[in-house]
């Protein structure tokens, strides 16, 4: 187990971390490429950039936009995302690992904050799953992975919480730490290839919508003409 832990903290971590970082860069570049291609081929080349930017910011900070409709769900979603980003990146123990290896680190979360945010994230994820099941529209649209993802994302949080805040025996600590590292690495590998890739693709979605899914006013007629059904209702 010691060796497995050492391996997963060393080479396996580097492998999965590189897959995540480069994989995200890759999907971003491929997405941009396809956007440019679509833009190049588009008949109408005007893109409402101002609108795209405001919309993107609105979606990034969905206070105004979403709170109107499902305030509780959005609140939990917000909390979940905040915890998901802040805790792994600014956790003292994680930064210390970087510091040991690279010689520099970033400011860290205070102990109490880390504790609180971890608990909050776990509860928010639970609430999100329940909300997804209870809401008819959501559950109709959901795929299996939509239920699975919050659970998978929770594994490192729960195991990390056990390791960091609960005084467990030495052997139990090892086990939970191994689970913590391995589950996090599984997530790293999956991020660029699943819907979690929205962490970098999100800002592009508005551009995609405006470049690729834009129909000029006379589109209806043209389609009908092509289909030999001129004048038929669309």
């Amino acid at each position: 187990m010691e060796q497995l832990l050492a391996f997963s903290k060393g080479p396996l971590f580097r492998l999965t971390f590189a897959v995540m970082v480069l994989g995200l860069a890759r999907v971003l570049i491929l997405d941009l490429l396809e956007i440019f291609r679509a833009y190049y081929r588009a008949g109408d080349k005007t893109v409402p950039w101002g609108q795209v930017i405001t919309r993107s910011i609105e979606w990034l900070v969905p206070v105004r936009l979403v709170f109107k409709r499902r305030p509780v769900y959005s609140l939990f979603s917000m909390l979940f995302h905040v915890g998901l980003l802040l805790v792994p990146i600014f956790l003292y123990a994680h930064v210390q690992l970087w510091r040991d290896d690279l010689g520099f680190g970033i400011p860290t979360l205070p102990y109490a904050w880390a504790y609180g945010l971890t608990v909050l994230t776990i509860f928010a994820a639970a609430a999100l799953i329940i909300g997804r099941i209870l809401n008819r529209t959501s559950s109709f649209l959901s795929r299996k992975q939509d239920y699975l993802w919050p659970i998978v994302l929770l594994i490192p949080f729960v195991t990390g919480f056990v390791c960091a805040h609960m005084g467990v025996s030495a052997s139990a600590y090892r086990f939970f730490m191994l689970m913590h590292v391995l589950s996090a690495e599984l997530i790293f590998v999956l991020i660029p290839f699943t819907k979690i890739a929205h962490c970098v693709l999100m800002p592009l979605s508005q551009v995609v919508a405006n470049v690729a899914w834009k129909f000029p006013p006379e589109t209806d007629d043209k389609v009908c003409t092509t289909l030999n059904k001129k004048g038929a209702p669309v």
């Binding site: 396996l12 492998l15 890759r26 291609r37």
Partner: peptide, 28 residues
């Protein structure tokens, strides 16, 4: 996607995975 996109998808995937393997193999 388009043939170009399909091809670049494949090559970039090969690149990313190979980079990760190389990065993991570097003797620390």
């Amino acid at each position: 996607g388009s043939p170009l996109l399909a091809a670049s998808t494949r090559y970039s995937l090969a690149f990313v995975f190979a980079f990760a393997v190389g990065f993991a193999l570097i003797p620390d």
